[in-house]
Each structure stands twice: as C-alpha cells, then as structure tokens.
Amino acid sequence: MTDFIIFSVTTIAIWSVLGISLHLQFGLTGLVNFGQVLPFAVGAYGAGFAAVHGLPIWAGALIGCGLAPLIGVLVILPAGRLTQDYWALVTLGAGEIFRLAMLNISGIAGGVEGASVVRLGDRTLAMVLALVLLTGTALFAFRMDRSPLGRLLRVLREDETLAATLGRNPLRFQLVVTAVSWVMAGLAGVLYAHVTGYVSPSSFMVIETFVIWTAVVLGGPNTIAGVVLGTAVVQLTGVSTRFIAQWSHLPSELVANLRLAAFGAVLVLVFLFRPQGVIPEPKRRYNADSR
C-alpha cells in the first residue's frame, strides 16, 4: 500500500504546483489561461529533448524551465491589447500547437511515440522532491501574495483602469506573473518527466488543463490552501475510480466517464453556489497611510 500512497502524494504535489501557478495567474491577477498544460508540457519536453539528444539532466531542466516562461511572455504580450476571452482562446490554441508540433515533429522528442527519460528509481525521493517543489512554490506564492506586488495585482484584477490611474502599467505586472508562474509549471513538468520516466503527447491534452481548472475553482482560486485542497480532492477522485470500478464491478469506462462528468458538474456547481470556492479569499483592509 505504501508505494501507492507515495505515488498518490507525488501526483497531488506535482498537480498542486500547476494549480498554484494557475492561482497566481487567475486568482491573483485575473488572467484566464486555458493553456495551463502548455508550460507543463514545455518543461516535460525539455527533459525529453535532453534525453533524446544525449544532454545531461540539468540541461534538460534548464531548457524546460527556461523555455516555459519565454513562451509564456510571448503568449502574454498581446494580452495587454486583448480582452480576457480572446487571450483564453490564444492560450488554448498555443497549447494545442505545441502538442501537435511534438506529435508531428519526431526530431524533438520521439514524435507520436514519445521518449524515455531518466526515471527517478527511488519513489520516496521522487515524492520528497515533489513535496520540496510544492513547499517552495507555495512559500514563494505566499510571499508574492502578501507583498506590495500582490496587493497591486489584486487591484489590477478588480479594475485595470484604476491600476493604470495609479501609474502602473498592467502589462508589465502581467508579464512578471506569467514568467514566474510559467517557471513553476515548467519545473513541475521537468519533475513529472523524471518521475514518469516517459514523455509523450498524450499526456498533454486539452482536458488536462481543465482538470487543473476544476481543482483550482473547487478549492478557491484565491487562496493557496484552497488550491492544494482542490487538487487533492480532484486527484484522489481520479485515483479512487480504480477502486470504485473494481469494487462495484461496473465497467471502468463508465466509471471513468462519470468521474469526468463529476468534474464538469463541480465546475458549474461551484460557480452557481460557491463562487469563492471551498476556501474563500479573506477580506483585506489596508491602511494606505501607514507605509
């Protein structure tokens, strides 16, 4: 049983990092990223590229984490001039372009077949690394949240014009947040590649983005604890379908589809009845004169 628990904890930790990354973009800054799977995929493919081309692991990690924010900045640049829903379409499209490119250009990392990468043989070590990454990401996000930048981002989220009247250029801060949060997701991707030991296009489908969204919206997009809680619930639901299928003798196809339907229902129900998520963002008061 221990191996399975270790595996589940590792999964939850990695997906929580993706959730926190989305929390910074959506919860804190109000950016609707429908391509959250993209930085994750870029990170993983950095590792895949290194493995295929005989580069050391650290080089793959560097490529993955370096390329993710770069692409992020490229994608965010037009956001200053686009309203949110157009930007959402751009990110959705960018994620698919990347996946299609990996699928069809076999020179990068094995094309449709995918590529083997060095696998962390020690599962406990993998879990510890994932937890370290999660802790680091959470602490960083927490600091960012409490910093003057965090306050400004909230203003930006609620009212871009107000932020602009304060003399702040919204785009600059959106750039910073995107770069930071895409590095996080890229790191999660690198770690995921080495935990799984394999990178393939089938891991980075559009649906993956919405599993992350479900977790973030469920837990409460505006708090880190909410994001981690939401991720844990969503990932454990995913894992538990195996046991439900075995125990209920229902076909696993049916159980798997009902699980996804439940995710969809969660997204809708949370918006209808508890838009702030399970753990809401506390009201904050600031005294502007005290600083």
């Binding site: 595996f7 999964t11 995918g114 995921y192 799984t196 394999y198 990178v199 393939s200 089938s202 891991s203 894992v239 195996r242 299928a245 696993s252 196809e253 798997a256």
Partner: peptide
C-alpha cells in the same frame, strides 16, 4: 482489469 487511458501517467498509476 485496470484502465491505462492511453496515457503514461494513468498506466503507471
């Protein structure tokens, strides 16, 4: 019988 969903992650799970 377990489902692999044609994804590495689910296969490992």
């Amino acid at each position: 019988v377990e489902d692999s969903e044609y994804r590495p992650q689910a296969g490992i799970e």
